[in-house]
Amino acid sequence: MRLLAVQICPKFCQEFHWSRGTIGFAVSVNLALYGLTAPFAAALMDRFGIRAVVGTALVVIATGAGLTVFMTESWQLVLCWGVLVGLGSGSMALAFAATVTNRWFTARRGLVTGILTAGGASGQLVFLPLLSWMVERHHWRPAAVTVALAALAIVPFVWLLMRDYPADAGLAPYGAERIEPRPAPRRGAARRAVRALADASRTGTFWLLAGTFAICGASTNGLVKTHFVPAAHDHGMPVTAAATLLAVIGIFDIVGTIGSGWFTDRFDARRLLAVYYALRGLSLMFLPMLLADTVHPPMVFFIVFYGLDWVATVPPTVALCREHYGEDSAIVFGWVLASHQVGAGLVAFLGGLARDAFGSYDLVWYCSGGLCAVAALMSLVIRREREPGVAPALGAAA
């Protein structure tokens, strides 16, 4: 749904006479709630089960998307797009992937995390060109309705096919030799999420992970995903062409994220993060020179390069959370993800303001590149060994 906002930003400006900053604020609320919901959703999955949480989240997304067709004021965009869709998508955020990985796998966890994370890129690849075509040919409202109906269509499959634990299907976790009994529901989900944050925040590792992931969000969801299409449109590129380039990122995102998961099972996660952030920052420094009214080979190279690095940071970040925070790692990663989305939300908003103030996004690209260099240095400072007094990581030998 956030991708739909990116595509129809020029349509909103034309129909409602809203500024880029106004639309950027709605997207920033969505991004922030996407992250802030994640740790509580991870705890709720331990209380009520994955199936119930995901099914409810899909209904909330469908409600928010469907109601946008009736909006006439900017606060309604913030409510529907920012709040409802943000809460719904946040409940199925990357903390969901971490929860599934911890429950269903004891081996190859890095690779599995990469594959599940790449699923988000697959959705972008399938829906983005279609929604872009609908926006150009039939206006933005049919596209919003399509998103709502697609979310509702998945609910029956979630309820009928999804299982909360391997034991529910009579299976052992992948890599384990015996079936683990289904644990009892853990009550006090909100209290547990806050306690996990309080415990993790006493360690330097948490703040380094949160800081690097905030920059990750700022340079991907907040910057490129939110502002690439409007920036390309500013240079005369058709919205459909720019949206297609953004979708192509999704193709290479799948390859890059799965590859990153494979690397995470074999190499030092800290060094992987440093390489990923350094390369991302370098590519952003070149982007202002590549934007034009047509798609040319250097731009295609940027899209391929950036796509490979898009969410390659997720598997090593999840692995470091698992290494340092044990059985609470999914919830702690949810809080790290919250910082990711806060960073994304700030840049989504500030990027729109910068465009309104300076007439271009150039300053935003350069500043984000510099932040990525800082994130690369922060990654190398993270301690490799486990924090004293923290429970051993589940499947640490995997």
Rank of each mutant, 00 (worst) to 15 (best):
Q7W: 00
Q14E: 12
F25S: 15
A26G: 15
V29F: 03
L36Y: 00
D46S: 10
I50H: 11
A52V: 13
A62Q: 11
T68W: 04
T72Q: 14
L87A: 08
T99A: 11
V100G: 12
I115K: 12
L116R: 11
G120K: 01
L130F: 01
L131E: 07
M134L: 14
R137E: 11
H139T: 06
V145I: 12
A148W: 04
L152N: 04
V158C: 11
W159P: 04
P166I: 00
A167I: 04
A169P: 08
Y174I: 12
G175H: 10
A176R: 09
A176S: 13
I179G: 14
P185V: 03
A196R: 10
F213S: 15
G217F: 09
G222I: 01
H233R: 14
D234S: 11
A241R: 15
I249D: 03
I251F: 07
I258S: 10
T264V: 09
D268M: 14
V300N: 03
V304F: 07
L308C: 05
L308H: 01
D309K: 07
V314K: 08
V314P: 12
P316Y: 05
L320A: 13
I331G: 09
V332K: 02
S339Y: 06
S339T: 03
V342I: 10
V342Q: 04
A348H: 05
G352L: 05
G352W: 00
W365H: 02
Y366C: 09
L371W: 08
M378A: 15
S379C: 15
I382S: 08
P392W: 00
A393P: 08
G395N: 09
G395L: 06
A398W: 04
